[in-house]
């Protein structure tokens, strides 16, 4: 889960209201899915409890007159998070693989499964490519990240398609 460190990181440039924080997050990292208010406040509450942020009350009333600021502990938490590499995903549990094997086991055309999947992948890739060419640098980088992953899947699809006969033999044998 990257929402908590992301919010912390955004706060490091200065205290913000909860609403501003959500907007900033959506702007930079939201892409397809804007953060729900509920998630913002529940995350901030957890950070507050852990002493990573503190609240500054502004003069005046209203429910949203709280400004959140990062604490020393919060700053060092961000630093630790940035310095820790993400664990590479092993992708060993693949739904696509399962489908292919089951198609073979049940005597269906596994190539059709693969083709349908490729069509779907490419549809998404076209979509991302279009967004990329219309968007700014941030869009491009995020879309590229997705595109490279999808491309990896597609390569796997191609490789599997080329080896379907071998796979069929080993699955049924």
């Amino acid at each position: 889960m990257t929402v908590a460190p992301a919010l912390l990181g955004l706060l490091q440039s200065g205290p913000r209201h909860g609403y501003d924080l959500k907007r900033a997050f959506d702007e930079r990292f939201g892409q397809d899915k804007p953060l729900a208010y509920g998630q913002v406040y529940s995350t901030l509450a957890r950070l507050l409890k852990n002493g990573l942020v503190e609240v500054e009350h502004e003069p005046g009333d209203g429910p949203d007159r709280k400004r959140y600021a990062i604490t020393e502990a919060g700053v060092s938490d961000v630093a630790v998070w940035l310095a820790t590499p993400e664990k590479p995903e092993p992708y060993l549990q693949s739904a696509m693989y399962t489908k292919v094997v089951l198609a073979l086991l049940t005597g269906r055309d596994a190539a059709d499964v693969l083709d349908a999947q490729r069509t779907e992948h490419l549809r998404l890739m076209r979509e991302l490519t279009r967004r990329k060419s219309e968007g700014d640098l941030a869009d491009q980088l995020v879309c590229d990240h997705a595109l490279f992953h999808l491309e990896a899947d597609l390569r796997w699809l191609e490789l599997t398609a080329a080896r379907l006969d071998d796979l069929a033999t080993s699955v049924r044998g």
Partner: peptide, 10 residues
């Protein structure tokens, strides 16, 4: 595939 993604269909 990333180049093919510039196409309308494949």
């Amino acid at each position: 595939a990333r180049v093919a993604a510039y196409s309308d269909r494949e």
